[in-house]
């Protein structure tokens, strides 16, 4: 404010000198300035320094936080990179495992199909043998039935009264002889 007053005064009365024409004003202005400067230094220095120190501390804290954030961000970045690398590896493993599983499944299916085919073949062979045996047995039974039927008819036709009497007498004789 003092400087502006001095400048205003100097501008009111322009001359050929760069200083104001009135020396008293210069002196008093200087003294006023010094007084003001003294008070400013006396009472304003400490708060200003304190303010500046606080400001510096704040900026430093902010810088530290930024540094911490940067470090954390770098850590996260590394983790993400690692995770991405792991995911690539895991994906490769999964694909590899899928290939292996598919191959194993194919092999198992082939083996099972072969085994099933063999089982079907064996069962068919067994069924064939069983059917043949059953057919032979049925044929033998049928032959037996037919033979016995024929035999029965022959026997029936030969069982006349005389034969019946002979059979009865033979039975009685046999019972009597077994005493």
């Amino acid at each position: 404010m003092m400087l502006s007053s001095i400048a205003m005064l100097a501008s009111e009365e322009p001359n050929s000198f760069w200083l104001v024409s009135d020396l008293n004003e210069v002196i008093w202005g200087t003294l006023s300035f010094l007084v003001v400067a003294f008070f400013l230094v006396k009472f304003g220095k400490a708060p200003t320094l304190k303010f500046l120190s606080g400001r510096i501390a704040g900026i430093k804290a902010t810088l530290d936080e930024a540094e911490q954030a940067r470090i954390a961000a770098e850590t996260d970045r590394d983790s993400i990179k690692a995770a991405l690398a792991d995911s690539d590896t895991e994906a490769a493993k999964i694909i590899e495992r899928a290939h292996a599983d598919a191959e194993q499944l194919g092999n198992d299916t082939t083996i099972r199909a072969a085994r099933d085919a063999q089982g079907v073949t064996e069962r068919a062979a067994a069924d064939l043998v069983s059917t043949r045996q059953q057919t032979e047995s049925d044929l033998a039974g049928e032959l037996s039935r037919l033979s016995l039927g024929a035999a029965e008819r022959v026997v029936e036709s030969s069982l006349d009264e005389a034969t019946q009497q002979r059979l009865i007498q033979s039975y009685i004789d046999q019972v009597g002889s077994q005493n």
Binding site: V155, L159, L167, I168, Y171
Partner: peptide
């Protein structure tokens, strides 16, 4: 029985029938 005899006395059976032979 077709022919012959079968005799049952109690649980004992003496079978001499043509049917049984067949």
């Amino acid at each position: 029985v077709m022919g012959g005899l079968v005799t049952q006395i109690g649980d004992s059976v003496l079978d001499g029938t043509v049917r049984t032979r067949l």
